[in-house]
Design a protein around this nucleic acid. Sequence first.
DNA 1: AAACGATACGGAACGCCGTTCCGTTTAGCA
DNA 2: TGCTAAACGGAACGGCGTTCCGTATCGTTT
Lengths: 194, 194
Amino acid sequence: MSDNQADAGGAVQSKRADARRNKETLLDAAAKVFVASGVDAPVRDIAREAGVGLGTIYRHFPTRADLVIAVYRHQVEACAEAGPALLASNASPYVALREWIDLFVDFLVTKHGLAAVLRSDSAGFETLHTYFLDRLLPVCTELFDAAVAAGEVRSDLSAYEVMRGVGNLCAGAEGDDRYDALRLVDVLVAGLRR
Amino acid sequence: MSDNQADAGGAVQSKRADARRNKETLLDAAAKVFVASGVDAPVRDIAREAGVGLGTIYRHFPTRADLVIAVYRHQVEACAEAGPALLASNASPYVALREWIDLFVDFLVTKHGLAAVLRSDSAGFETLHTYFLDRLLPVCTELFDAAVAAGEVRSDLSAYEVMRGVGNLCAGAEGDDRYDALRLVDVLVAGLRR
DNA sequence: AAACGATACGGAACGCCGTTCCGTTTAGCA
DNA sequence: TGCTAAACGGAACGGCGTTCCGTATCGTTT
């Protein structure tokens, strides 16, 4: 899962060993910097942490957003895969949805500022936004629709809105001890109930 | 309401006519640019629109945020003043709270990107963030506490969380027709109910 | 009317950002 | 052991908010 940065499947590996090694180094360094300083950390910080030039970063990841995507891709993957599993192991689709949202939220708040990226249109992050949506929205939709079909939640919303809503609630939760994102998401999810 | 930029009351007017005129021009220009391009519009755009140098802006408004505050001050004021009024004219504090939140949301979504500012810690916007909180939080608290006291809403939240939550839900609502912030706020507020 | 501070003005300059460009180095193959 | 395509580092670019300062203007005082 570590190499392709376009769609899953057909990505080509670089021929040269140093390039592959550097990409790996870069991903590690970026992950480290992201947890330390948030997703907004300057590209230069990551380059320094990796002991690498700026050009190197930008050949591997054409855009800051692409780097962020690559770093979090497999974590998003895990979240996506949990969806169907939860649906299968729960009698109530609503409960499954709630638990999936818990997972989603955990993921978001663990990574500094990642949630903020979910609502950003500032060009560069559009890619990341798109990726999150492409991968997670179908999962969320499946859970949400099941809960709607079971008559457990109100039906005047879209799964998309729920996901973005949750993402937005988590935005900027870091470093503000008066604001408990988990609890607010709980309120939102409670409001979903029919 | 047009001149003071510190706290209400004791602000001193500039002695020179051109300064007063420029400040006015600046506020008009900024308002115009903000509706056209959102609160994130570059300072230089505002300077150009006003036909004024950058230095002039920064003497009148030490920070971008101060300018934004000045532009929206009386609208924030109106929102703040509506709180007690709603509380007085409604039998149910919960209904008053809900209506106040409607006002608040209207204000946020009408002005491009203003909501995003509520969740931002990015240094530059801190002033703006602080101002919003200082003025609006007490109002929201009054309404919220009344609703809690009346036993109409759950009590494991703070007014601060509600306000930030609503603000967050509205962030990035522009230009996304699949995302209806109003409706999500509605869900959140419904979830508040006890 | 003239002269003179105090005050306000414009915009060049600074530091930080993401990103691009290109001369230099190096890996892997013949 | 060369040779070349690939990858490298980092200077340079344009855009941002903000600062700084020489210049122009205002309002006053003679």
